[in-house]
Simulated scan of single mutants.
Amino acid sequence: MAEEKWVLMVTAQTPTNIAVIKYWGKRDEVRILPINDSISVTLDPDHLCTLTTVAVSPSFDRDRMWLNGKEISLSGSRYQNCLREIRCRADDVEDKVKGIKIAKKDWEKLHLHIASYNNFPTAAGLASSAAGFACLVFALAKLMNVHEDPSQLSAIARQGSGSACRSLFGGFVKWNMGSKEDGSDSVAVQVADEKHWDDLVIIIAVVSSREKETSSTSGMRESVETSLLLQHRAKEVVPKRVLQMEEAIKNRDFTSFAKLTCSDSNQFHAVCMDTSPPIFYMNDTSHRIISLVEKWNRFVGTPEIAYTFDAGPNAVLIARSRKVAVELLQGLLYCFPPKPD
């Protein structure tokens, strides 16, 4: 390794993803192993994404991280698990232009500086942690010359945030819950790439950018412990829905896709209400948006719009075409006029 005080950097951009068949509940809190499969759609990285720069230098005396300009602690197990898993897979790195050589064994001694930025609200139910940990793992893998494929990297990102495993692919992505105790088969796989169904347009209606009162982590734990509906959902409902959703995506069958997406979102929030104490992620505006979409689809006689809400009040609306998306946006601005600044 060269003696001079050099810095080597890599920047990565990773989109967020929105589940259309929800992940809610873990069978292993430490390894972050889910109680059911899930399917998501990855959003356009030019619109909602995390941008992360990772840097290594012999002049750094400890690992440090900044999120949206504010330094945060890396002491938590989720960050430490991701850093450990990537470091143990690191390989030799050489930058001939800068004259830098890093031997595989040197990575254990070198420290990192990480700067991450979300261009959308953090901890507001828009999967910021999914994009964040996926981007962190991907950037570190590039910096350290890790040779794992995206599915193998997804098993590492999963240890930071479960849904992060799905953000390492574009298009439609399935997170297999797996069955092995070590979680080695709990990985993400691409169902269809981003060009497969490019008629779809996704609109995010940001109802509130405030941080949610109940984090996804604690909410899941409480649901697993107290909700009988969650157990029924995981064992009886989701396995069938996953197969139906894969078929709908494969055939670009929007009618089936919309019905499954809306039903699964509603059941997820029913599970939250079935939890003790009940968890309320949506608000009155969220409910008004659902009512608007349901009335719209009934009026035209066929589903043109699907809605889904993650652990927050913000609506993800999926239109079957650009024409429908334009009309929907006009309807939303009429029914929910933006407040003047």
Rank of each mutant, 00 (worst) to 15 (best):
3 E>F: 07
5 K>Y: 15
8 L>K: 09
9 M>P: 11
11 T>E: 15
15 P>F: 00
16 T>C: 12
21 I>V: 10
23 Y>H: 09
24 W>I: 11
25 G>S: 09
25 G>P: 07
25 G>D: 00
26 K>S: 03
27 R>V: 11
28 D>G: 00
28 D>Y: 04
28 D>Q: 04
31 R>M: 13
36 N>C: 06
38 S>W: 04
50 T>S: 07
52 T>K: 00
53 T>V: 04
53 T>G: 07
56 V>M: 02
56 V>Y: 04
60 F>Y: 12
72 I>D: 00
73 S>A: 09
77 S>E: 12
77 S>W: 08
80 Q>T: 07
85 E>G: 02
92 D>M: 12
92 D>P: 09
93 V>Q: 05
97 V>G: 06
97 V>F: 09
103 A>S: 11
105 K>A: 15
105 K>Q: 12
109 K>N: 15
109 K>S: 15
110 L>N: 09
110 L>T: 09
115 A>D: 13
117 Y>M: 10
119 N>M: 06
120 F>T: 06
120 F>Q: 08
129 S>K: 03
131 A>G: 08
138 F>L: 00
141 A>S: 00
147 H>D: 15
147 H>S: 15
148 E>F: 02
148 E>Q: 15
148 E>P: 07
150 P>Q: 10
151 S>Q: 03
154 S>D: 04
156 I>M: 03
157 A>C: 05
162 G>P: 00
166 R>C: 01
169 F>L: 03
172 F>A: 08
172 F>M: 11
175 W>Q: 12
177 M>D: 06
186 S>E: 08
187 V>S: 06
191 V>T: 06
195 K>N: 14
204 I>G: 02
206 V>Q: 08
209 S>P: 03
214 T>V: 09
215 S>H: 02
216 S>G: 15
217 T>A: 10
218 S>F: 10
221 R>V: 12
221 R>P: 09
228 L>R: 14
228 L>D: 15
231 Q>P: 01
234 A>D: 09
235 K>T: 13
235 K>S: 14
237 V>F: 01
238 V>A: 06
239 P>D: 07
239 P>H: 08
252 R>S: 08
253 D>W: 10
253 D>I: 05
255 T>C: 13
258 A>D: 05
258 A>N: 07
258 A>E: 01
261 T>W: 03
266 N>C: 12
266 N>D: 14
268 F>L: 10
269 H>T: 05
271 V>L: 07
271 V>I: 15
272 C>Y: 03
274 D>W: 12
276 S>Q: 13
278 P>Y: 09
279 I>L: 11
282 M>W: 02
283 N>V: 07
283 N>D: 12
286 S>T: 03
286 S>L: 05
287 H>I: 01
288 R>M: 03
288 R>H: 11
289 I>H: 01
290 I>W: 00
301 G>A: 01
309 F>L: 01
314 N>I: 02
315 A>T: 00
321 S>G: 07
325 A>T: 10
327 E>M: 08
329 L>D: 14
331 G>H: 09
333 L>P: 04
336 F>M: 02
337 P>V: 02
